[in-house]
């Protein structure tokens, strides 16, 4: 098993991969490194769980894979190459301990080595509008806290990505077809009686199923789920995982795509991760050695 998490399983080619991904957030005056050169890849139709403790960088990695965030272009040093003095939070060009230069980038961590690829296209080189299109057509996000628009009804929330995709005229032209599709997906998730309800009138499970329906409306090849059961009780969480599994099984109801959907699911719960084909463990912003196979159930 590869230490960089690229030990992809399954029959398809690589659909999503990253290598040498670094990410540092700035909190006030302190730089907090989150990802330290993460590399991994996911094959078409594969269900991969990124497992890690809170703060391990798994959500950040998912955001970068989904084009919602960008990997750092310049890698900051975290320790002096000569004396290993901890440079976290410092902007110095010279090590305060040994006086050696700490400017520049480690030879093995050049930004050129940072790549995030979707079907061979490098997301790090995409413009903002290209990333918008990528998120709209190739990726469907499911978040822990559902993230539904409170002013819109269930069906309107589900149709939101389609509204963006087709524009005003296109949406009006395809309105009947898209509405039928949204209704079919929502009905398959047991939300047929909730179409005109607002999110505030739904239970947590119903909200999450609405979020999954929204993620599927444009029939994206990848579903990115960030702790989809994290805010739910165990029983509801199980039903949500069933919904995710159903979403994976070829196209969603009413959609023509016959290939299995690729799922990347972030979780801190090993039991949830066990539903995946493969588990990539993330520890302190690095892929841990060894890749576990999930049950894929």
């Amino acid at each position: 098993m590869a230490v960089d998490g690229t030990g992809a399983m399954g029959a398809g080619g690589v659909i999503l991969s990253c290598s040498g991904v670094y990410k540092t957030y700035r909190l006030g005056r302190v730089d907090v490194p989150v990802l330290h050169g993460v590399s991994m890849s996911v094959r078409e139709g594969e269900w991969v769980a990124i497992l890690g403790a809170s703060g391990s960088g798994k959500s950040t990695l998912m955001h970068i894979l989904g084009g919602l965030d960008r990997a750092d272009r310049i890698v900051r040093r975290t320790a002096c190459p000569k004396c290993a003095y901890d440079l976290t939070g410092l902007k110095a060009e010279v090590c305060p301990e040994c006086g050696g230069s700490v400017a520049g980038i480690l030879p093995s961590e050049k930004p050129a080595a940072t790549r995030v690829e979707f079907r061979g296209q490098d997301l790090t080189r995409m413009s903002v509008s290209q990333l918008d299109t990528y998120r709209n057509r190739s990726v469907g996000f499911v978040f822990q806290f559902y993230h539904l628009l409170p002013e819109l009804t269930v069906v309107e929330n589900a149709l939101l990505p389609a509204m963006q995709r087709w524009g005003r005229l296109g949406f009006m032209r395809k309105r009947g077809e898209l509405m039928g599709q949204a209704r079919m997906i929502l009905e398959s998730f047991g939300l047929g009686h909730r179409l005109e309800h607002r999110p505030a009138e739904l239970s947590g499970g119903e909200r999450q199923r609405t979020a999954i329906a929204r993620a599927l409306i444009n029939d994206p090849p990848i579903l990115l789920a960030d702790e989809p059961t994290g805010n739910l009780d165990q029983k509801t969480g199980e039903s949500i995982l069933d919904s995710v599994a159903r979403a994976r099984g070829g196209s969603a109801p009413g959609q023509a795509n016959a290939a299995k959907r690729t799922i990347v699911m972030v979780t801190h719960d090993a039991r949830v991760a066990a539903r995946a084909d493969r588990v990539v463990r993330l520890v302190d912003g690095r892929v841990a050695e060894g890749v576990e196979a999930g049950t894929g159930v």
């Binding site: 919602l68 903002v128 918008d132 998120r135 709209n136 057509r137 628009l149 939101l160 995709r165």
Partner: peptide
Amino acid sequence: TKDIGILRSVGCSRGG
């Protein structure tokens, strides 16, 4: 703010 994040996550552009 959160709604704006949601819109961006489903691919809505800055201009939109």
